[in-house]
């Protein structure tokens, strides 16, 4: 239950650019697995964020400017400021039974994928990583992954500012032909994840694990803001990682989400 009680920590390091920053906190030894998230509260603005880095002592969250809360954090939070942290919350990517991973991170979905790749490389599991973003600077925080010998990393950008131009899904075919992938882990815009999953299904029937995002108020499974239609599962407590085969039975997957007031908004 201790993970449900908010505790505040000073941020001791801030990296990134004007649109996206990574905030680091010294939290000590906590059992955190890739795919899990925290509720971050900065000056009474709170949102869920996936863990993008954890080394057994320090935790990092990579935050993209999207709405008022993230804008407030990115423009105002500086080294020495306190954030309230509640977590780790939710489930995680299944890693134990697999040996060769394809990881795909689109946009700020790169955050949990980065942590997952770090984690897999640490336990010497082979992972091929595809990152897609609108511009290359948004993926700068992942560049050190290339130095891990278990990881192969490729980048795709909309504006051709990085290695390859185009959609992150362009890289899938080559990896599936080259590697004996036994699971795929995805995080990013839902439309991208659907295109990617359909492409993967044409080649192989390996399990596809998808990390979902929905508006959350509590993050701990009781408010009901993030429940998926019609399967009734809570993204915060039953997820955020779900099997693709389960997700496609949800009528909102790739189609709509709900806002803070519970109203439906189409993607």
């Amino acid at each position: 239950m201790n993970n449900l009680i908010e505790k505040s920590y000073k941020t001791f390091r801030v990296d990134g650019c004007t649109d996206q920053k990574t905030f680091y906190f010294k939290i000590g030894k906590v059992d955190i697995k890739p795919g899990q998230f925290y509720m971050l509260n900065y000056n009474n603005s709170q949102k869920p964020f996936s863990v993008s880095h954890y080394d057994g002592e320090n935790i990092g969250f990579t935050i993209l400017k999207r709405g008022n809360t993230t804008l407030h954090m990115i423009e105002n939070a500086k080294i020495g400021d306190y954030f309230g942290l509640t977590g780790p919350l939710g489930n995680s990517f299944h890693t134990e039974q697999y040996t060769n991973f394809l990881l795909i991170g689109g946009g700020v979905g790169a955050a949990p994928i980065y942590f997952l790749s770090e984690y897999l490389s640490k336990i010497n599991k082979k992972n091929s990583v595809l990152f897609g973003s609108r511009t290359s600077s948004l993926c700068d925080f992942t560049h050190n992954l290339k130095s891990n010998k278990s990881a192969t990393v490729s980048y795709y950008t909309d504006d051709n500012s990085g290695e390859n131009q185009g959609f992150v899904t362009n890289g899938i075919e080559e990896i599936l032909q080259k590697e004996k992938i036994d699971t795929v882990c995805l995080c990013g815009p839902e439309k991208m994840m659907i295109v990617a999953s359909e492409k993967i299904k044409k080649f192989t029937s390996v399990p596809i694990q998808i990390s979902m995002e929905r508006y959350m108020k509590c993050g701990i499974g009781i408010c009901g803001s993030c429940v998926l239609d019609d399967i009734g599962l809570r993204v915060c407590a039953d997820g955020p990682v779900f099997d693709y085969e389960l997700l496609i039975t949800s009528k909102e997957f790739g189609k709509y989400h709900r806002n803070s007031g519970g109203l439906i908004e189409k993607f």
Binding site: I222, V227, L228, D230, R234
Partner: peptide, 11 residues
């Protein structure tokens, strides 16, 4: 509690 959407209440 869990009472925003129909799916959630059915579950």
């Amino acid at each position: 509690i869990l009472g925003v959407t129909g799916s959630s209440m059915i579950k």
